[in-house]
Design a protein around this nucleic acid. Structure first.
Lengths: 138, 138
DNA sequence: GTAACTGCAAAATATTTGCATCCTT
DNA sequence: AAGGATGCAAATATTTTGCAGTTAC
């Protein structure tokens, strides 16, 4: 995983700007996923709401981050692994939402299981979200 | 699965009102899941937006329907099976979103697979959403 | 210098709340 | 009759859009 903010942006042919560096930095400096609100309210940083929306959207399009749908309708974003390319996400790992601290983790080592779908159904992507207690809260 | 609207409401100690009958009827008469907007715009029926919000919330609380989170941030609702009790959902089946017709199905016969979570994590619920082409669209 | 990015204002949507009225039991 | 449900109005919250000024390359 490339850890340098500038390099990630360069690799995706995005211009290097303050907001992008700071927002991408937030993702790199912590393990969990971030919701739009988390980023906006992040202490010490003042982001324009609109810039956050647009930056997140750009990152998703470029395959730098991916979205994690959760039951409470709060979309979270998390870093993609290196093999995500523009328009072609490969986040075949399981997501875990802690019901206590509500941190969302990407369990990169837990692979999405195979599913036997009924006749006639073909799936291109499977999203798995587990809910429970994480290792820090147990 | 109980198919009678009035009976379902009675079983859950809800008063039988026009909106509840109509909204619950919508769920019973079709296989897919419904989003809030689907219900509101349903041709032939005029529901107050607020009533729809409150009715759906009541149904979820009573365990009559459950929510299905999807990547596009549109929450869908689908009927629970009979073994859902108030405050204790048992929808251990897989959900399928067709990328073509965007109907969301509950695949009641496909059971949520077991997951090997990392040390320290315990899950109480696992949500699986598959995306692809359904049997009607292939 | 040019194209892209940002931030402000404002529009468009979506969701929640209060309250008076009506309906179910 | 009493409690709960509905529908309207309005308050909040969320997301999108337009545009002028600024910045990266």
């Amino acid at each position: 995983m490339v850890k340098d903010v500038k390099e990630i942006l360069k690799n995706n042919s995005l211009s290097i700007t303050g907001s992008r560096e700071k927002i991408l930095g937030l993702f790199l400096e912590q393990p969990g996923a971030l919701a739009h609100g988390d980023i906006e309210k992040r202490a010490g940083e003042k982001f324009d709401r609109v810039t956050v929306y647009r930056t997140l959207q750009t990152f998703v399009e470029k395959g730098i981050i991916h979205t994690i749908p959760t039951a409470d309708n709060s979309i979270r974003y998390a870093l993609c692994k290196d093999d995500c390319k523009e328009g072609h996400h490969h986040d075949h790992h399981v997501h875990f939402v802690c019901t206590k601290c509500s941190i969302t983790y990407c369990l990169d080592d837990v692979v999405t299981p195979e599913l036997k779908l009924p006749k006639g159904y073909t799936s291109s992507h499977i999203e798995v979200v587990a809910e429970g207690i994480c290792k820090n809260c147990k």
